[in-house]
Amino acid sequence: MPVTLDLSQTSIELTRALCDIESVSGNETTVADAVERALAGYGHLEIIRDGDTVVARTTLGRAQRVIIAGHLDTVPVNRNLPTRFETIDGVEYLWGRGTVDMKAGVAVQLKLAAELTAPSVDVTWIWYDHEEVADELNGLGRLARNRPDLFEGDFAILGEPTNSRIEGGCNGNVRIEVRAFGLRAHSARSWVGENAIHKVAPILTLLAGYEARQVEVEGLVYREGLNAVGISGGIAGNVIPDECMVHINYRFAPSSTSAQAVEHLEELFAGYEITVVDQAEGARPGLDAPLALQFLTAVGGEAKPKYGWTDVARFSALGIPAVNYGPGDPLKAHADDERVALSQITDCEDGLRSWLSASVR
């Protein structure tokens, strides 16, 4: 029996329905099929499918086009489905995997895509797969390669959780492996060997004492971070190890390129073997674009920086100014007690609806 979604439901009810369709990265087909079926009956939308990415767009001949996107996948479930409603300190929440990251945002987008038959700008809605895993699998990146024409736009909004407040740009991200080498020996005669694990002690000391910068970029202050996220070494309990690796993650402000970030790491860890595992450019705020300014005025509040890396960087790389805007506290993303305040879902819907329904620009 095919899973169905009713887009006439409230955005809160739709969030719950979406979350209860388990869609851990790699298992998005069921939810993508449900999204495509739900949108099929709306004549004002052209529906396009690319793998488990679903696109719906208007072609009203408006002077400007906005891209609004959200991902359909989640991190693995950990006894946090099915969803449930709960009240904490008088605040009503929807609890469960995906409520924050980011099916509440997707629910808002789907409801508005169905109901706004004549938005003030043409809109390309994109719901994509494989955001939570390796970059080469990312559905938004795949769509950009397969259908670059779908990325023609003047402004983009990504529904990442921001407490329903605008967050501009995003930090860049670099991961490296730093290796120290020694000489194997029997642990009973350790003095004839060189312990590679001991040799990484200066690396850990440097990381523990590192003071991350706070960098202002176009009026927003981005907080950087440099941390060990893994360590491995040793082959047996009675062997002095000849190799040890520290896995390091660097989150850098969008005023720097990933190449500059790597150069900084090479300076910090000079004398060690360094392997770059992954790197992704950040995105500048983009809040000086006319549509961004109009959106900020419509939504209200003060724009904040996005500390984590998000797919706004893909839009930025294409020359499209982009912001993050979606319900949910980012601190609850991926948490076992992931939950979204119901008021934030409706606030996000109201903000987007108000802006997209304004007089034609």
Rank of each mutant, 00 (worst) to 15 (best):
V276C: 03
D122Q: 07
N146F: 03
L14W: 07
V100G: 00
L331Q: 15
V91A: 02
A114W: 03
C244T: 09
V277C: 11
Y93T: 01
L94D: 00
W355G: 04
H264A: 13
L331S: 14
W191Y: 14
G98K: 01
I88N: 04
A34Y: 04
E267I: 11
A17G: 03
E243V: 15
V66Q: 02
R339A: 12
I235T: 15
D336L: 09
E115R: 13
T87S: 14
I166A: 08
T87L: 03
L112K: 05
N227K: 14
L291E: 05
W95P: 04
V262P: 08
S190R: 14
E177Y: 03
A322N: 01
V31C: 04
H198V: 11
F295Y: 14
T124Y: 02
A212Y: 07
D135Q: 09
G308I: 05
V215L: 07
E36I: 00
T162G: 01
T124H: 02
R84G: 02
F85K: 02
I47F: 08
A253T: 11
D154T: 07
L60S: 11
I235L: 13
T205K: 13
L296T: 02
W355R: 01
G153W: 09
N238F: 12
A298G: 00
A40S: 14
H130M: 12
A253E: 03
L207N: 10
A303M: 08
E281N: 13
R49W: 03
L45M: 12
S11M: 02
C348E: 02
V360F: 13
L45A: 06
G234L: 10
V108R: 07
D122R: 11
V75L: 06
W127E: 03
S359N: 11
D336R: 13
R179N: 14
H247E: 12
I240L: 11
V312D: 12
K103W: 11
S316K: 05
I126R: 02
L110T: 04
R213Q: 13
Y222D: 11
E243F: 05
E167Q: 15
G326S: 05
G286Q: 09
A253Q: 07
Q260P: 05
